[in-house]
Amino acid sequence: MILKGTAHKYGKNVDTDVIIPGRYCNLIDPVELGKHALEDLDANFVKKAKAGDLIVADTNFGCGSSREVAAVALKGAGVSGVVAKSFARIFYRNCINTGLPIFECPEGVDGINDGDAITVDADNGVITNETTGKSFKATQFPKFMQDLIAKGGLLRYAEQRLAEKKAAKEGAMHDRAAT
């Protein structure tokens, strides 16, 4: 998967309250949520962002609330991915679970300015700043998470676990019947 768009650069500790304010957390529709993405951080973001654009931010992106709609709102606004120096842990899980590509890449963040044209080879974690011509390598996801993403996400993984548990239970019953 190749992601291509303009970088919108922000600082440290971009919290989920500014990604999608609490007052919109009773919305579910991604498009409606997307209309308010980053509203309290950058009121112009939704106006200037085009489909495919990427967020580039410093450390601890997505800190705060567990609201999954934060990841959904960014997707709803057309954001194709987020590059940050580090992510807050619940937001990190939520991105994997909702399919918003994220990339941990401190050097990349320092090497990208607001408005630069960015291309990301998501499968290989290679971030290229087309404006400067420089490329950066993102931290690899642990193998378990790579497999989880490859399988189609957490819900498919849950299905697999349910099937394994069922099989184990039936196996145990079969064993008992045999003895």
């Binding site: 609330s65 567990s66 990841a71 619940i90 899980r93 939520n94 679970n97 909702t98 819900l155």
Partner: peptide, 28 residues
């Protein structure tokens, strides 16, 4: 809810997660 960490006050391992994690936990 991110403040699920509260229950650590009583010596539990408690952490907040998003809704999809909750859905998978409901099932498994």
């Amino acid at each position: 809810d991110s403040h699920t960490t509260t229950y650590g006050g009583l010596g539990a391992f408690a952490t907040g997660v998003g809704s999809t994690d909750i859905a998978a936990a409901f099932a498994t």
